[in-house]
Simulated scan of single mutants.
Amino acid sequence: MAELRITIGGREFDVACQEGEERYLTAAAAMLDTEAQSLSQQLGRIPEARMLLMAGLMLADKAAGAEDNVRQLRARVEELETQLAAARANPVKVEVPVLPAGVTETLAEIAARAEAMADRVEEAAAS
């Protein structure tokens, strides 16, 4: 077991945790300390047990809000996945108009004329 000294609300505590879990405990203690500091600033010095209880409740409230957000986001993801599956099952058909055969021939003729004119301009410029 690893032994750590953490500070919460200006008070130090010695705690133990499993080897390798130190950084998680330190991060959790920092979150609790942030809430405890906020309480200390608002209420002044309060008994240790009350400070820890209130800081824990504040964190629990934040966690409950985060869980609600996660639930809403999961519901939205499911809704979007359902819409995507429906769209894949029933693809929208788009009709692309086909150019009449005469148009392509006309465009080819215009391109040939443009090339011929470009050749004449180049010859005139070279002379």
Rank of each mutant, 00 (worst) to 15 (best):
V98T: 09
A30Y: 04
V92N: 01
L99T: 05
E19M: 03
V103F: 15
A36V: 07
A16D: 02
Q18W: 05
G10A: 06
E22C: 06
P97C: 01
D61N: 13
R50C: 06
Q37W: 07
I110R: 14
K93W: 02
T7W: 03
M51A: 00
V103L: 12
L84F: 00
C17M: 04
T82N: 09
R74G: 00
M117T: 00
L52D: 08
V96K: 02
N69R: 14
R88N: 09
E48G: 08
E81M: 00
G102D: 13
A28E: 11
E67H: 08
M58I: 13
I6T: 09
T82Y: 02
T7P: 02
I110H: 05
E79N: 08
R88L: 07
V94A: 08
A85G: 04
R113D: 01
V96L: 12
A64K: 09
A55H: 03
E78N: 11
L99Y: 08
Q72H: 09
T82F: 01
T7A: 02
R74N: 04
E35F: 00
N90R: 12
T26M: 02
Q83G: 10
A89T: 00
E95D: 13
L107A: 13
S38P: 01
E35R: 08
A36Y: 00
E19K: 03
L107E: 13
A75D: 11
A28Q: 01
S40I: 00
R74F: 02
Q41A: 15
A87V: 01
L80M: 12
A64R: 10
L73R: 15
V121S: 03
A124N: 12
A86M: 06
P47K: 09
E123G: 04
A111T: 12
G20R: 12
V77K: 06
P100M: 00
A55T: 05
V121Q: 12
A118M: 08
D68S: 12
D119N: 07
E81W: 00
R71K: 15
R11A: 12
E81F: 00
T104G: 10
A28R: 00
V103A: 09
D119A: 12
E48H: 07
V96I: 15
A60D: 10
K93R: 10
V121W: 11
E79Q: 10
L107M: 11
E21L: 13
P47C: 02
A101G: 05
G102E: 14
